[in-house]
Design a protein around this nucleic acid. Structure first.
Length: 1042
RNA sequence: GCCGAAGUGGUGGAAUUGGUAGACACGAUGGAUUCAAAAUCCAUUGCUCACAAGGCUUGCGGGUUCGAUUCCCGCCUUCGGUACCA
């Protein structure tokens, strides 16, 4: 009987579902084990081959733990709010809830095919109102909390208010907004209700604040960095600017230190911890205040006339090197800094304004990445050095980011390379305040070897002493203090989107009010359009039924808003990470309508024992979840302040993206005035020389614009067999010249044909869905046009009647349209083959491009495995019974126990690829040994079962068992079967292995050396030389030197 | 730019503490079986030198060591993250 995987897999999937084999109980005698895979976003592209990689690993571990006697919780759900469903809704008008439901059904089908041991009774969906009710609930808890630095934890806001009532806020040590005023009890009690609310909002763990966003005026919406390419929107290529908007923020910075400290307690990969550590970015230094000199005074100073001091403004900076304060020769503000507009002198205004505007167009990442271009502008204003009282010019520069520190730096060019480069570029003084250091070429940033000079009271001090001294001095003169700064910023929690959790918030007199918990969930309203409103409000602004009636406690029509009992509701929605920040706890008690989870459930499961997911979540989901968990811990809802003990990052399965190239709308006709190159062009043969010539001549063409003209159509240019990115832009233009003639008028055309002009172009790569491309990289042009409405009338310039895309290995993602589904593989080879193959591909943590080439190998392994059990499968022979009951041979036992040992070690080390090899070796050996012993084959089935559960169940039942293999105890390894008496020693000469020699293992060092030295092959190798040294490592190796 | 990971045959990868580099597969080549094909089985397969013997070989260049894929220093390339993709 052949291995019929289709029948076997369907049979056992049905069996598991019907018998609820993997349903976890919240009450068990067994020890608990919580194994979790990061839940997927159900994209329209379906589950791709990268998803199961981590799921299979978690599943193997879960099944292994069941064999080891644990009560295993292994749930699955969907992170089902998100941008793609909304984009799809915008494009098609289809409600995201419907798309999402369809996508989930598709995912479920695909997941079911793969034979995971999920407890589906616990499924959660973040977009389900019964689920997001609790996301809203957490939000309210955060709103009703403040962070008390004295107790170093979050507390209920009522404790803060009662302090205010008794004594004001002078003695309160809390994490709060920078602009929080100080007041006493009398003042507090005198505040109006609204003023009180405004003050308290500055303390709440979730609060309203003005934050910068990427605003795209043309689309009327905020864009993710991801949606911006080269400074313009990915969709449509519209300009994007940085803009301030009032949004909800989460005071994650309150937890900066605890998030850092907590990393020591958890077994997470070091690189992931590193990235969280860097993200939090703790640095120790000082905050220093510089007074801005009055403009009049600074000007008159230059004339040598002194006028009275006046300090209308102050600049606060954070520096990690206050010891270098005497090296300050200028200050740099971020162009967005609020003082820029106030201090800029009239003479400098035009330059500064232009620079500020230019900066607004650059993304933050761009500004950080680009260290080569130095740019800035002088404000005309001066600050006063707190010690020397010298005037210091104040510049603005985009290398200073508004969001980091105070958005201002005291520039010490001799000690900081960026300051140094800036100073060099603008010919600003670079005073050297280090003893015995040459700074003519570069800045000196070595703290350890620092000796301060030319710095008044700091002269001669090393770094550490100078730090201490300067902080004392700063404090003495009231110009600063020692400070710990974190790079971590409060997390923006508002999104101007439709498809997300609505905030349980309505506004009374502009102040946010929480809806009572008992009235949750506040459900998403229906809208006509999913786009922002014409006035630029978020999509929820389109809802007509979106007001809160405080009497009836329900959502009512906007028309009824009277600001007395009926108020407008919040129009923003929550971000993607809201729903994923407590889902792991919700799984413990997912159907509970009265609480996010019961105390019994959380106290039983405690935390996640093993969490598997991608490292790309390092500073998003994994940091925010730790933050919420700590908050939940502070409030006494959860027993652990870290939600996952151990975390493994699965490597990404990368995809092979396909690109087409969209021609820029603007073409430029340029004059050819170089007689040499045009001559060469005429003969047309010397292309390489021509190209080189033209590249050299490019400068010459720069000024030779005859005219610009626009083409209204979307045109795609060939990839030149995928080589386009290797060509110079110039060369590409040249190759396309003839094809572009059709867009020219006759006069221009003849100029090009007469070689007087050529057409200069720009172009950009566009991702195309890999399903529209065949195996030879040829694009289905018609399919492409139908694929997205914007390409409906696109024109293609073909090569030999075909459009060949270019390929690149990238992250597999819906936005890159390079997703490959597991369905076809399941159909052809079965789930067990796919499971084994994904593991066999390589180490779990490593990323690798998807390639199905080797799948036949694991599939034929399963066939061999099946064949090994044929005495139990082919029932005809009664004689086979006697064979199968036979005692296993020593050889059989050796093979089995070698396998048990290796597989157990591999699973514990998450080295699943090597156990697949081990199974192959085991089956090859047992087949060669003609093993038919039940005593061997029974434990082998259990070993295989976590990896290939369907075939293992089938074999198990054929072996005569009536119950599932799922809880069969894992075979016990016995060392005695592996004991060897001799070892085949590799004999090396100067480190190179020359021959092998079998020797008893109980020989000691000297005996081994004697045996080896006496051997004829040794003598032959030595050719009469006497070895200088003989290294003998018993049980390992012999190395003869000389 | 910064932070992180990876680089081993034609391909995926193995080598668990510094001790036989290339396990196990894929592919390729030859053969068996077959009317034929599929499937299956057997053999060969890092490169180089026409055999052998030998030489070379873990991204590149150095170093430590009796011995380095493994440790150290300096580079190169690819991939991931970089705060609104999830």
């Amino acid at each position: 009987m052949n291995y019929d995987f289709r029948e076997i897999e369907a049979k056992w999937q049905k069996y598991w579902a019907e018998n609820e084999t993997f349903k976890a109980s919240n009450d068990s005698e067994k020890p608990k084990f919580y194994a979790l895979s990061m839940f997927p976003y159900p994209s329209g592209a379906g589950l791709h081959v990268g998803h199961p990689l981590g799921y299979i690993a978690t599943d193997i571990y879960s099944r292994y733990k069941r064999h080891k006697g644990f009560n295993v919780l292994h749930p699955m759900g969907y992170d089902s709010f998100g941008l793609p469903a909304e984009q799809y809704a915008i494009q098609t008008g289809q409600h995201p809830a419907i798309t999402t439901e369809n996508n989930i059904n598709r995912y479920r089908e695909q997941l079911d095919q793969l034979g995971f041991s999920f407890d589906w009774s616990r499924e959660v969906r973040t977009s389900n109102p019964q689920y997001y009710k609790w996301t809203q609930w957490v939000f309210i808890q955060l709103f009703n909390a403040w962070y008390n630095k004295k107790s170093d934890k979050a507390e209920n806001i009522s404790s803060l208010i009662s302090i205010f009532e008794k004594e004001g806020n002078a003695n309160v040590e809390a994490v709060c907004d920078d602009d929080t005023p100080t007041f006493d009890a009398a003042a507090w009690n005198g505040f109006s209700e609204k003023e009180k609310q405004e003050i308290v909002l500055k303390y709440r763990l979730t609060y309203l604040a003005d934050t910068e966003v990427n605003w795209c005026p043309a689309l009327g919406t905020v864009l993710a960095n991801d949606e911006i390419v080269n400074g313009v929107s990915e969709r449509g290529g519209h300009p994007v600017v940085r803009k301030k908007m009032t949004q909800w923020s989460m005071r994650i910075t309150a937890y900066a230190q605890r998030l850092l400290d907590g990393l020591d307690k958890i077994d997470w990969p070091q690189p992931l911890k590193d990235s969280q550590t860097n993200w939090i970015g703790r640095s120790v230094g000082a905050s220093v205040t510089f007074n801005v000199l009055d403009a009049e005074r600074s000007r008159s100073d230059q004339d040598g006339i002194s006028t009275p001091l006046n300090h209308p403004y102050q600049i606060e900076v954070f520096t990690t090197r206050p010891d270098t304060i005497f090296g300050v020769s200028f200050m740099t503000l971020a162009p967005e800094h609020e003082l820029v507009a106030k201090i800029t002198t009239p003479e400098q205004k035009a330059e500064v304004d232009a620079y500020v505007e230019a900066t607004a167009k650059r993304s933050e990442r761009d500004r950080m990445a680009d260290v080569k271009t130095i740019s800035g502008a002088f404000t005309g204003a001066y600050a006063e050095h707190p010690f020397t009282k010298e005037p210091i010019p104040i510049w603005i520069g985009d290398y200073v980011l508004a969001s980091y520190g105070t958005g201002a730096v005291m520039a010490v060019p001799c000690g900081d390379q960026r300051d140094y480069d800036f100073a060099k570029h603008y010919h600003i003084d670079i005073p050297n305040i280090f003893e015995g250091v040459d700074i003519s070429e570069e800045a000196f940033a070595d703290k350890e070897n620092t000796v301060i000079a030319k710095s008044d009271f700091l002269n001669g001090l090393p770094y550490k002493k100078a730090m201490k001294k300067i902080i004392t001095e700063l404090e003495k003169i009231g110009h600063g203090e020692g400070k710990v700064n974190y790079r971590l910023r409060d997390a923006v929690f508002s999104r101007q989107r439709y498809w997300g959790e609505p905030f349980p918030v309505y506004y009374v007199d502009g102040m946010p009010q929480m809806i009572d918990v008992e009235h949750l969930p506040l459900q998403l309203p229906e809208v006509e359009k999913y786009l922002p409103t014409e006035t630029g409000e978020p999509p929820l602004g389109n809802a007509t039924e979106w007001a809160w009636d405080t009497d009836k406690n329900e959502v009512v029509s906007n028309n009824l808003i009277d600001h007395k009992t009926i108020f407008p509701l919040e129009l923003n929605t929550m971000p993607g990470w809201a729903g994923s920040s407590q889902y792991f706890n919700r799984y413990m008690d997912p159907r509970n309508d009265d609480a996010i989870f019961s105390p019994e459930a959380i106290n039983y499961w405690q935390d996640v024992d093993l969490y598997i997911g991608g490292s790309e979540h390092a500073t998003g989901h994994l940091l925010y979840s730790r933050f919420w968990q700590k908050f939940m811990f502070d409030m006494g809802y959860v027993p652990k302040d870290e939600f996952a003990k151990k975390l493994i990052n699965q490597g990404m399965i990368t995809g092979t993206s396909a690109f087409v190239y969209r021609l820029g709308k603007k073409l430029t006709l340029r004059e050819i005035n170089n007689s040499d190159s045009s001559k060469k062009r005429e003969d047309g043969r010397d292309n390489i020389n021509l190209r080189n010539q033209m590249i050299q001549d490019t400068k010459e063409f720069e000024d030779s614009i005859v005219k610009d003209f626009e083409i209204s159509k979307t045109v795609f240019i060939p990839s030149f067999q995928g080589e386009i990115m290797k060509l110079t832009p110039f060369e590409t233009s040249y190759r396309l010249q003839n094809k572009l003639l059709q867009y020219l008028n006759d006069e221009d055309k003849s100029k090009v044909l007469n070689k007087e002009c050529f057409i200069d172009i720009s172009f950009e790569p566009v991702h195309v869905d890999v399903s529209l491309v065949n195996a030879s990289d040829e694009l289905d042009v018609e399919g492409f046009k139908q694929w997205q409405p914007e390409y409906k009338d696109a024109e293609f310039i073909l090569e030999d009647g075909k459009y060949i895309v270019s390929r690149e290995v990238e992250k597999m993602s819906k936005s890159k349209y390079n997703v490959v589904n597991p369905d076809a593989i399941c159909e052809e080879y079965g789930a067990d083959s796919l499971r084994l193959y994904e593991m066999f591909l390589g180490p779990l943590e490593q990323s690798k491009p998807w390639n199905t080439a080797g799948i036949t190998g694991v599939h034929s392994f399963l066939k061999k495995l099946w064949k090994l059990y044929s005495p139990f499968i082919d029932s005809d022979a009664e004689r086979s019974r006697s064979v199968t009951e036979s005692e296993p041979t020593a050889e059989n036992l050796k093979t089995l126990h070698k396998t048990i040992k290796k597989v157990e070690e591999d699973i514990e080390n998450f080295s699943f690829n090597t156990s697949v090899s081990t199974f192959m070796i085991c089956v090859n050996e047992l087949t060669a040994q003609k093993c038919t012993s039940k005593a061997i084959l029974e434990p082998l089935a259990i070993l295989v079962s976590p990896y290939a559960p369907h075939i293992a169940e089938e074999l198990w039942s054929r072996l005569g068992h009536s119950k599932s293999i799922a809880e069969a105890p894992f075979p016990k390894f016995e060392e005695k079967h592996l004991v060897e008496s001799s070892k085949e020693y590799p004999i090396s000469f100067n480190g190179k292995m020359r021959f092998k020699l079998e020797l008893p293992l109980d020989m000691n060092k000297d005996e081994i050396e004697a045996a080896v030295m006496a051997h004829e092959k040794t003598l032959a190798q030595l050719e009469g030389r006497t070895p200088k040294k003989v290294i003998v490592v018993p049980g390992k190796i012999v190395n003869i030197v000389g």
